[in-house]
Nucleic acid binder design. Structure first.
Lengths: 149, 149
DNA sequence: CAAAATAGTTCAATTGTTTAACTATTTAAT
DNA sequence: ATTAAATAGTTAAACAATTGAACTATTTTG
């Protein structure tokens, strides 16, 4: 039997997390013109890593590799990313941003940052720091859970 | 120009929030057999409200009404919800859980709660409480932003 | 070297979504 | 009281994200 307070935490968490994700996505969509919310995060991730593979993206975003193939196809069609060869392993496709993709991302990050900023500045620095720290702990816990499965 | 610390917060928040949502959804999917992640949250919401309308769901989840029509069609086909009439306004469709839907949700909540619990109990009560409070503030801020648009 | 593992793609199917056009009903304005 | 505007919901066409199974090509391993 679950402890009562934990049960209430879970209830509140489930209610609020889905809402914030949905509403946040709806707001961000306004800044992304042609690119979808999901595609934006893939571009962000590739940019942060410089170069990455389908398998890595599939692991990070917890989806099948075929979902990544479909996504990257769309991003290649839009001219945002390019597929390259890996010297060491000819099975591997190296994904990276094109010049167009890099420019688009830099411009868009500006607008996204401004959007997130108008929200964040309604909280104190301490509160934001604490919130993000806990969020990062959750991310690590989830990652460990998947690895031990 | 953005303050440097705020910019780092935004960077960390964007990175972590998408990941936690994706990985959380992937984990929850295991508990939901035939029902999708999105459908689960719709069922939860209807259950919490007792009865609700398409328009309300569209507002809450920040999607178009036609998306709700499609979703509710699938949930009706699966026997989880029913469409009823509204006495006062014959345009309105009253959505509610069927007996099957109510039972399924109660059983499933048990499993979902256990899943979330194994994650949450790795944090202290104080940390969880603070995290959820901030999350709820964010939800309110997002709601206000949409209302003033 | 043969078998097993890995990286990625293809294809068919399902789900969630948007937009525009539509029906039915209610509210409001003159 | 009647008409015009607003509201609730549906339909249809299109696209994006996803899964799962079957597949090719390459590398690793026993």
């Amino acid at each position: 039997m679950l402890e009562r307070s934990i049960q209430q935490f879970i209830e509140r968490y489930l209610s609020v997390s889905f809402l914030v994700h949905k509403r946040g996505a709806a707001l961000m969509k306004c800044e992304l013109d042609d690119i979808t919310h999901d595609q934006y995060y893939v571009l962000r991730y590739i940019h942060k890593r410089g170069v990455c593979t389908s398998t890595e993206l599939a692991d990070v975003f917890a989806v099948n590799k075929s979902a990544i193939t479909a996504m990257t196809n769309r991003l290649v069609e839009k001219g945002m990313i390019a597929r390259g060869k890996d010297e060491d392993d000819r099975r591997v496709i190296a994904l990276s941003l094109t010049e167009k993709g890099r420019k688009w991302l830099e411009e868009t990050e500006q607008n996204v940052y401004e959007l997130v900023e108008t929200i964040m500045t309604k909280l104190s620095h301490e509160e934001i720091e604490q919130f993000i720290q806990t969020y990062e702990k959750l991310a690590m816990i989830l990652q460990e859970m998947e690895e031990n499965k």
